[in-house]
């Protein structure tokens, strides 16, 4: 029989993963890596939802994670299409160069 793990450990783990993702968004300039960091942040939230869903024995959290995965797939498809258009026009995906809207 498996023994339990305190919910606090799951909270800490997903907080740490979320913040690694947030630091990656702030510290990197490559747009694709920023996208991957956003995926990591979504995964941290998913882990938290699954842990609480198991804790309270409630399936709604896991269904929610399923929908988050579907939305993330859609988001990645559209986002990567936009990035490939940006690369075609700028020959770079450095986000610091993409400041045309500023003027």
């Amino acid at each position: 029989m498996l023994n339990g793990i305190p919910i606090n450990y799951y909270i800490m783990l997903s907080a740490v993963l979320f913040i690694i993702g947030a630091v990656g968004v702030m510290a990197r300039r490559n747009a694709i890596i920023i996208f991957m960091c956003i995926e990591l942040m979504l995964n941290a939230v998913n882990l938290m939802l699954v842990a609480f869903s198991t804790l309270h024995n409630d399936a709604n959290g896991q269904v929610f994670v399923f929908f988050i995965m579907a939305v993330a797939a859609a988001e990645v498809a559209v986002g990567l299409a936009i990035l490939s258009m940006v690369y075609r026009n700028f020959k770079s995906i450095d986000i610091d160069l993409l400041s045309r809207l500023k003027n």
Partner: peptide
């Protein structure tokens, strides 16, 4: 938050 509760996987 939710102190000392165990997740029974």
């Amino acid at each position: 938050a939710e102190q000392l509760q165990m997740v029974q996987g």
